[in-house]
Simulated assay, not measured.
Amino acid sequence: MAKPNKKGPTRTVDIFCAKCKVPLFKYRKGGKGALIKCFKEHIVEDFTQVTCTCPSCGQAFARECLIRGAPALKMIGGKVSFK
């Protein structure tokens, strides 16, 4: 399988915790669909101290995994929102 494009998309979105609305990431997202996974190389700014855990409420919002050979965060449904 092909790895994700290194340059990546140019559009950035802000990802928030759905429970407490605290910012989690600034992410370069491609396409207009739902947020299912975040490739780590596309994360511009990371506001979390512990990976996959909200810094405010402590809720786990994702799982670490490999997708197409690249490290990524697989989002848990309903735990995050983005603008």
Results as ranks from 00 to 15, higher is better:
Cys65Thr: 13
Pro23Ala: 11
Val22Phe: 06
Cys38Leu: 15
Cys65Ser: 12
Lys74Glu: 11
Ala60Lys: 14
Phe39Ala: 05
Lys26Ala: 09
Ile15Val: 15
Gly77Cys: 01
Thr12Val: 08
Lys3Asn: 09
Lys37Gly: 12
Leu73Phe: 04
Gly58Ala: 01
Val50Pro: 06
Met1Leu: 04
Ala34Ser: 13
Ala70Leu: 03
Leu66Gln: 13
Phe16Trp: 09
Val13Ala: 03
Cys54Arg: 01
Phe16Asn: 15
Leu66Asn: 12
Gln49Lys: 11
Pro4Gln: 03
Phe25Cys: 11
Lys29Gln: 13
Val80Glu: 04
Thr53Ala: 00
Cys38Gly: 08
Val50Gln: 12
Ile43Tyr: 03
Lys7Pro: 06
Ala60Val: 13
Pro23Met: 10
Cys57Thr: 00
Phe82Trp: 03
Lys40Leu: 09
Asp14Ile: 06
Met1Phe: 01
Thr48Leu: 01
Pro23Ser: 13
Ile36Phe: 12
Lys29Asn: 11
Arg63Tyr: 08
Thr53Gln: 06
Glu64Cys: 08
Gly30Met: 10
Val80Lys: 04
Ala72Ser: 09
Ile15Leu: 07
Ile43Cys: 07
Glu41Tyr: 02
Ala18Ile: 06
Arg28Pro: 14
Asp14Thr: 12
Ser56His: 01
Ala2Thr: 03
Phe16Leu: 11
Gly58Val: 00
Phe47Cys: 07
Glu45Asp: 13
Glu64Val: 09
Lys3His: 10
Gly58Tyr: 00
Cys20Lys: 10
Lys79Gly: 04
Ile36Val: 15
Thr51Gly: 00
Val22Lys: 14
Cys38Ala: 14
Leu66Ser: 11
Asp14Asn: 13
Pro9Asp: 09
Val22Glu: 14
Gln59Ser: 10
Cys20Asp: 15
Gly78Ser: 03
Val44Trp: 02
Pro55Cys: 01
Thr12Tyr: 02
Cys38Arg: 10
Asp14His: 13
Ile67Leu: 12
Pro4Phe: 01
Met75Gly: 05
Pro4Ile: 03
Thr10Asn: 09
Cys52Pro: 06
Ala2Trp: 01
Lys3Asp: 08
Gly77Thr: 04
Val50Asn: 11
Lys7Ser: 12
Thr48Ile: 01
Asp46Trp: 01
Arg68Asn: 08
Leu73Lys: 05
Phe47Lys: 13
Val13Arg: 03
Gly77Val: 00
Pro55Val: 00
Phe16Tyr: 15
Ala62Thr: 06
Lys26Asn: 14
Lys19Ile: 10
Lys7Cys: 05
Met1Tyr: 03
Pro55Asn: 02
Arg63His: 13
Leu73Glu: 07
Glu64Ala: 07
Pro4Ser: 04
Ile36Leu: 15
Lys6Arg: 12
Thr10Phe: 02
Arg11Glu: 14
Lys7His: 10
Ile15Asp: 07
Ile15Trp: 04
Thr51Pro: 05
Val50His: 05
Phe25Asp: 08
Lys21His: 14
Ile36His: 15
Gly69Trp: 07
Ile76Ser: 04
Pro23Ile: 12
Leu24Asn: 09
Thr10Ala: 08
Ile43Lys: 09
Ala2Arg: 07
Arg63Asp: 13
Arg28Trp: 07
Ser56Trp: 00
Lys7Gly: 11
Ile43Thr: 06
Arg63Glu: 13
Gly33Asp: 15
Glu41Lys: 12
Tyr27Met: 10
Ala60Gln: 14
Gly77Ser: 05
Thr12Pro: 04
Cys38Trp: 04
Lys29His: 10
Gly58Lys: 02
Val80Trp: 02
Cys57Gly: 02
Arg63Trp: 06
Ile67Cys: 05
